[in-house]
Amino acid sequence: MKKTKTSYLLRGTPSILLVLGAGFVMASSKDIRAAIGMGVAVLLSMLLSSIVVSAIHKIIPNYAKLPVYVLIITGFVTLISMLMQAFVPEVVDMLGVHLAALAVSAVVYRDAEEVADHNGEVKSIEVALVTGVFFTVIMVVCSLIREVLGNATIWGKEIAFLQDYKISGLVSAFGGYLVLAIVLAVINKVTGLHHHDEKEDN
C-alpha cells in the first residue's frame, strides 16, 4: 500500500498519466477537430487550476483538498466549455458529455493535487503545459489515424480515394483502444521508454 502511494507521487511523466486520461483520449480521438478542441480544454483547465491550486493550497485544510480541487477544476472546465460552446459549438457537440467529464478526470485533479500542491507555481505551470501538450499530441495522432482510415475524412472533409476503403471499426469504441495502444507502443519503442512492469510495485 505504501508503494502504491509512492507510485502516485512518481507521476511526473505524462505517459503514466495516460492511464487515467485514456477515457477522454479515446472519446475525443474520432475526429481531429474534437481532438484539438479537447487538447485545448485539457491544457487550459490544467493550467488555470494549477495556478489557482498552488496559490491557495496552503489555506485549504488537508482533508478538504481533493474535493475542493475537483470543484475548482470543474469551475474552469465550465467556463472553458461555455466559451467553446459560443465559438466552436460543433466541437462541443462532438465531445458531448466528455467535455464536462473532463472536470472529474483523474488526470487533471491528480495533477493539481500532487504537482501544484507540492511544488511552486512555476513548476506546476510547467508540468501542466507539458502534460497538456502531450495529451493534445497523442489525441491528434490517434484522431488522424482514426478519422482518415476509419471515416475517410480529414477535418470533416471527405477524402475521395479512401471512400471505398473505410475501416469503420476504427471509429468504433474498439478502434479507440486499438489505435491508442498501438500509438503508445510505437512511442515506447521509438523513445525507448519502456514502462516498468507494474507488478513489481505491488
Binding site: 485544510p61 478538504a64 474535493p67 475542493v68 470543474t74 469551475g75 467556463l79 459560443a86
Partner: peptide, 27 residues
C-alpha cells in the same frame, strides 16, 4: 471536517457560479 469541507465547496462553487453567470451574459 465534513461540515468545513462542504462549506468550502459551497464557497468555491459560489465563486465559479458567479463567474459562469457573468460569462453567460457574454456567451
Amino acid at each position: 471536517y465534513f461540515v468545513i469541507t462542504i462549506a468550502i465547496l459551497l464557497a468555491v462553487s459560489a465563486v465559479f457560479g458567479a463567474a459562469a453567470f457573468a460569462l453567460n451574459l457574454y456567451t
